[in-house]
Design a protein around this nucleic acid. Structure first.
Lengths: 223, 223
DNA sequence: TAGATTGTTAATCGATTAACAATC
DNA sequence: TAGATTGTTAATCGATTAACAATC
């Protein structure tokens, strides 16, 4: 037996954690940050779950995938749990990010304060329109798309945001992968395919509204 | 036995369809629209699944929750299936939408073409900053937040988009509910609570990046 | 007809819930 | 101590996959 106890593995297999658990982890983190802001020092699984609409058992089970963070009789200490979740998500260090496509949505994303607050720093923007390149948007330099690989490598950028129209999203994604990024958030309303080795998160704003429409029409709760 | 055969209920209980199935429905729809654009008339569950990274069995099972849309030996006729899915999602008619919070993100959402393409029409925007009210952004009139209830009722708006800062999101949501909306898409990075009767979809842009970071660090596929 | 492909059933797999001894 | 609350196990519930007769 290689681990100290036989309970939790010293190195839990994070890749095998259910996807649903990981997505709730981000919600726990966000809630904990608000709790600290409101002056709370500890929180029980019951109260944390209640705030998010989950059961206490689910909160405890989710967190237990990653280790033992709670204190029986007390609950979870907020700052401690925040640090732990940041470590698990990998957002305890700053991630340099590239954004491709400085249109309406791209500009909004460049100005979005929430990224910085969670450890993401958009260090370079790219566009193929020469009227936009060379300028600065929200403090971020807009480079020409042709310089993508060079700048991404120079700055050690690991993830890219795609905010171009649907018909160029695949090409942009391919260039980002060539340039060496390991993950992409795609805001274009189209399916893109990437090598297995590159992670992909798709965000389709119209689909979010569609999902809402369905639950309105069928009177069901979305969460 | 009230239904014709004993197979599919004449009125399938849509509220009991798994949430995951409904979210894939939107992806099928998006893919089918691209397929039609590319000149395809029919598509098999195998090919549709392949495009999206799902198995053929899953595609067939998902669609079978809602009825029989396929043709053995042929596959699914794209335009037919598109119409069926639109009917299921409720986006076969136009949904008038209200947007609250004309900041960076709000402006981008007002200019987002994808909403219109999927049946959503932002008919009114609201802000509490008097310098913004009375103007027009992307062809949409910006009203003062105080006029929310009046305009929402006048236009029969059923869903609202919240794109205000986190600290005013709950208040804005409450006012939207008072005004009679039945569903809300919340872009503010905070949990909001609504009556059971109102549907809620939350979109947190930083959380999407966090989820990507986790899968990059743990080299796992997000979809 | 032969080949392709559906809708559906049964088997498998995975996630959530309930319960409770252990702990503070 | 008594009360609160955890981490974990076992039981339940739900979703996905595999297989195949029915259909075009």
């Amino acid at each position: 037996m290689s681990d100290a106890k036989k309970n939790k593995p010293a190195t839990p297999d994070l890749a095998s954690v259910p996807k649903a658990v990981v997505s709730r982890l981000s919600l726990y983190l966000r809630e904990l940050q608000h709790l600290v802001f409101d002056g709370h020092e500890t929180i029980s699984s019951h109260r944390l779950g209640k705030l998010l609409g989950f059961s206490d058992a689910q909160v405890r089970k989710d967190l237990a995938y990653f280790g033992q963070f709670g204190h029986p009789g007390i609950g979870y200490r907020c700052p401690e749990l925040i640090a732990a979740i940041r470590g698990i998500l990998g957002t305890d260090a700053v991630w340099p990010v590239a954004l491709v496509g400085v249109g309406n949505l791209g500009r909004a994303l460049l100005g979005y304060k929430g990224f910085g607050a969670q450890g993401f720093q958009v260090q370079a923007a790219f566009d193929s329109d020469a009227r936009k390149t060379g300028s600065t948007v929200e403090g971020v330099t807009v480079y020409h798309f042709d310089d993508l690989a060079k700048v991404v490598r120079q700055r050690g950028i690991r993830v890219g945001i795609v905010s171009v129209p649907a018909d160029s999203a695949q090409t942009v994604a391919d260039r980002l992968v060539e340039a060496g990024v390991e993950g992409i958030v795609n805001f274009a309303p189209v399916t893109i395919s990437l090598p297995e080795s590159v992670s992909l998160v798709g965000v389709d704003l119209a689909i979010e509204l569609e999902q809402l429409a369905f639950s309105v029409v069928n009177r069901r709760q979305t969460r």
